[in-house]
């Protein structure tokens, strides 16, 4: 219940016009802060939904694969430059962002993550690392403005944001590969 309240409050605060304008005024903050926070809001509400609708999740997300697939599709969709532009100019797309990221990405992520095998988790992690390097490369290398709403330097910043995050993920993957927790736990 606590998590539901925190999640709902977070979603509400993120939807407040001044907060929305501030976070959307900087390209990297739009994609790397507002969007993940929306996912977190959904992630927090997921527990309540799991308790209320156990049958639904059991039926549609037995092994976690459908859920994680939905999560990946939504996340990949929102890494595209065009979707950000549309969110800023088309109100319906903005609403879709506020619905899809919490409820079609955050909720299935929570329901799926524990159901996935270790190799499944590593695949998702590696996939996102590669995606982040790729997106970083795209945003850094593109000589053109990819979003009408943001300047070229902001695009470059977003590119480096992707690359640094990917580097962090590589550090984590290397740590996972080299350190055997059973030696310590």
């Amino acid at each position: 219940m606590n998590q539901l309240i925190i999640g709902a409050l977070l979603l509400l605060v993120l939807a407040l016009p001044p907060v929305r304008h501030l976070l959307e005024s900087i390209m990297i903050v739009h994609m790397h802060m507002q969007m993940p926070l929306l996912v977190v809001a959904g992630f927090l509400t997921a527990k309540y939904m799991q308790e209320k609708l156990p049958g639904f999740f059991k039926k549609w997300n037995r092994n976690g694969l459908p859920g994680i697939l939905l999560f990946v599709i939504i996340m990949v969709y929102w890494t595209l430059p065009r979707t950000m532009d549309e969110a800023l100019t088309v109100p319906a797309v903005e609403i879709f962002k506020y619905v899809s990221l919490p409820f079609l990405a955050g909720v299935p992520l929570r329901d799926s993550w524990k159901k996935l095998s270790v190799s499944g988790k590593n695949t998702v992690f590696t996939g996102f690392t590669m995606l982040f390097f790729g997106m970083g490369w795209l945003y850094i290398k593109s000589p053109e403005q990819l979003c009408n709403n943001y300047l070229l330097v902001e695009q470059l910043t977003l590119g480096w944001g992707f690359v640094t995050m990917a580097v962090c993920m590589v550090v984590y993957l290397v740590y996972k590969a080299l350190v055997d927790p059973s030696e310590y736990e």
């Binding site: 900087i26 470059l156 910043t157 480096w160 944001g161 640094t164 995050m165 580097v167 962090c168 550090v171």
Partner: peptide
């Protein structure tokens, strides 16, 4: 490390 990246990428690129 993620938080550091969040904090530093924007001003550093600028």
């Amino acid at each position: 490390l993620l938080v550091i990246a969040m904090g530093y990428v924007i001003p550093m690129v600028e």
